Amino acid sequence: MSATLRSIHRYPVKSCRGESLADAAVEPWGLAGDRRWMFVDPDGDALTAREVHGLLLVRPEETAYGVRLHAPGAEPLDVALPAGAERVTAHLWGSVLDVAVAGPDADDWSTRVLGRPARLVHLDDPAQRPTDPRFSDADDRVSLADGYPLLVTTEASLAALDDAVLERSQETHQPAGEPLGMTRFRPNLVVAGTSAWAEDDWRRVQVGDVVLRAVKGCARCVMTTVDPDTAERGREPIASLARIRRWDGATWFGVNLVPDLTGLPAGAPPPVVRVGDPVVVLEAAAPGGGPVRPA
């Protein structure tokens, strides 16, 4: 079976629930509308689901004028794109960003829902944040994703991981629970029709008409152990990934991508990926070396 794009996912607010899309425009810093909003504390430091698990229960919905926020036990809040008059400095993984403040209504809602002082901010200029230069080009940019514009995963690799979780549960005489599901890995693109871990070897891949550079494997953190439906923390998938996907002191699942949009005419609309698009590997490394990672 040839590889195809099975699903597309956008996360309007960092660390919150995602939206499944039939198609999406691909901008230099990621899918259009992906991770352009973020919650910060009073000092401007990013709040993520690594520490604030309840963020995973907040469901953003992109609208024509901004974003609508849903959360358990709270009335939905409509937030307009801020005009940008009020600005603060935000901090995210070493990046110092100039961002627009959503306003007092959003701050009040955020504080009530998260149970701690919080503000909602918007990255209206995504061109200001560079990617990690060790794995990408000097002019590559990323919005509020952790490090790179896009993350790709494959159904075959998730199936292999689920098998490993089941095997570990049998060895340790613990309940296996439900299959992990792709949601907790928060990919932008999910590909069907590959072998397990084939994405480790990709270096350039074409999805529909869009060419993407595969620049680095994705090292997985404690956030993947938080159930996205309940916000409760467990041991998987890190426990099983540590058995089958451990290199250099980290565990790996998925590959980070950077759009290669060179050659587009000036002023041209961004290219679009669509569910069902063929996925073609243009360049690949020798198999078996694991994902690209720090030397």
Rank of each mutant, 00 (worst) to 15 (best):
I238D: 13
F253V: 12
T225F: 04
V255W: 00
V281F: 00
C221H: 05
P237E: 12
T251A: 15
P271D: 08
V281A: 04
P265T: 06
D209S: 13
T225N: 11
D209L: 01
V211P: 01
T262P: 06
G208I: 03
V211Y: 03
P269K: 10
V279D: 02
D277A: 09
P269H: 10
D227C: 05
G234E: 03
A219F: 04
V226A: 04
G254S: 11
T262E: 15
A250L: 13
S240M: 14
P265G: 08
I244N: 04
C218A: 13
W247P: 02
V215Y: 01
D277T: 04
P265L: 04
G276N: 12
G217W: 09
L257G: 14
A286K: 05
M223E: 06
R220A: 12
R220S: 07
D260Y: 05
P278M: 00
V210K: 02
D277P: 06
R220M: 08
V210T: 02
V275R: 15
G267A: 09
N256S: 14
A285K: 01
C221Y: 13
I238K: 14
P270K: 07
P278W: 01
D260R: 05
F253W: 10
D277S: 11
R233D: 03
V207F: 01
G267W: 13
E236Y: 09
G288A: 08
P271K: 06
A268G: 11
